[in-house]
Nucleic acid binder design. Sequence first.
RNA 1: GGUCCCAUCGUCUAGAGGCCUAGGACAAGACCCUCUCAAGGUUUAAACACGGGUUCGAAUCCCGUUGGGAUCACCA
Length: 513
Amino acid sequence: MIVTRFAPSPTGFLHIGAISTCQINEKLAHQSGGKILLRIEDTDTKREVEGTTSLIIEAFKKFNMFFDEGPISDTEETGEYGPYFQSQRKDIYLSGVKYLLEQDWAYPCFSTEEELDAIRKEQTVLKFRTGYYGKWAKYRNFPEEMVEKYLDEGRPYIIRFKSNGDWNNKRYFDDGIRGKVSMPENDIDIVILKSDGLPTYHFAHVIDDHFMGTTHVIRSDEWLASLPLHVQMFETIGFEAPKYVHLSPIQKLDDGNRRKLSKRKDPEANVEFYLQEGYPVEAVKEYLMNIANSDFEEFRKANPINAVEKFELKIDKLNNSGALLDFLKLDSVAKEYISTLSSSELYDKLLNWAKEYDTAFAEVMKNEEAYLKSILAIERDGVEKVRKDFYIYSKIKDEVSYFFKDKFSFDVKDFPVSLENARELVEAYKNLYVHEDVKENWFPKVKDLAEKLGYAKNPKELAKTPEAYKGTVADVACVIRILITGRAQSPDLYTVMQILGKEETLKRLNAKI
RNA sequence: GGUCCCAUCGUCUAGAGGCCUAGGACAAGACCCUCUCAAGGUUUAAACACGGGUUCGAAUCCCGUUGGGAUCACCA
């Protein structure tokens, strides 16, 4: 049984990579019958941005992602290993620090920022590794009476972990994706307790993941470099270390080079971007699963209708190099996804989206529910080959705008034939249009009309003797289409006219041209 | 710079020494179907970064080079 966790810090919006990481954590836990917990890493009071905890929680909800334990709002939480806000776990960390101090695995350090800077500079000049280690770890073996004295003087201090590692010793560390990774032992005395009394990530990680029962720490790549440190801390304290899995970040192309999607520079790093554009969250999750684990594509082919939830994820199949975010592929996944929806399912999801991002459209949708549903049903309900043109909710409004009187207009310049021919053709068509006709009768009539007026039945005939025709039947249909929809391309015209209704159709056919 | 990771079509990838004439998906091109579009069908082009080894045999193992990425805080 696998217990995983997702541990964001509330410093801004939720990153799209977080959805991916979290999805992997969630899947691995649940497919094993285990649990996933959410923990808010709010130990950096300087960087913390107010309100982002609830922002993150809300974003997860919008993506239909739920945790077995952890915060459910910015004040409430569930689960028996809490609190799940690190800022509320101060006492736990403090007693941990106290224990480490007693065991002589940690010590107070009185170095000032200036001293630390000086050390770093010196090390850089001397071409040594930077860090608080070896002879630079001035307070590592500071005499006890001096410590007492400094403490009495009220000097500010922090607590450092007393590393027992040797940088010249290489050893192997296990990573679920990469296997054995050889790295030098950690010999840097890292800070475990900051001057504000809050722990650093490293210490909080060890304490929390031990006491919360995490079995697998699945986190982003950037933590791989800290693996020796983390393993060392677990070993020193005598806790059993979790299994580690380091995920490659989603990247983007920038000036020909790949780089991690940046919160600051890239709007598409923000999950809100996808929500706002109206990408179905199901599609986004499928796409992310796709780049996280290529086996998923095979699964999709075999199980076209099944949800992501049924897929079994294998840790060693996880992508190890960092994929480029590919919107073309995302769009394609989204098209496929939307094509599996019935008109009323689509209606519900679209309305749900509009309520938040296009309230005016949401009102229209609510007022004309039946009409909207019939529009969304075009080449969707009850057909074998579903139309695949919708991929984001924000574009659907424009796609169907011609169904609404106030949004409809046409331009005679779009006609593929001369105005004169168009008039002739429309006049003739009006006379033979019967709204009550069944679908099977509709096109043959247009075809007959086309022939009578001197249009070729198909492009091949036109190609044979171009001078004999005014155009093809396609041109005839196109003129009608422009009159009805205002555009040269549309879904099946007959169906469109049926949905518009007799009155509106005739009105449009009778438009002055 | 130190440490570590990664390297297959444009993109995501399959690939565990012989099933590889390197497979699939997205994107692109062509054709078919077709009243337009969207689909659907058929199809074309497109890659093992480079150089050395090891081996009867290397995309696969080893070494090096190159390129890219991550990390080196009282941030997470």
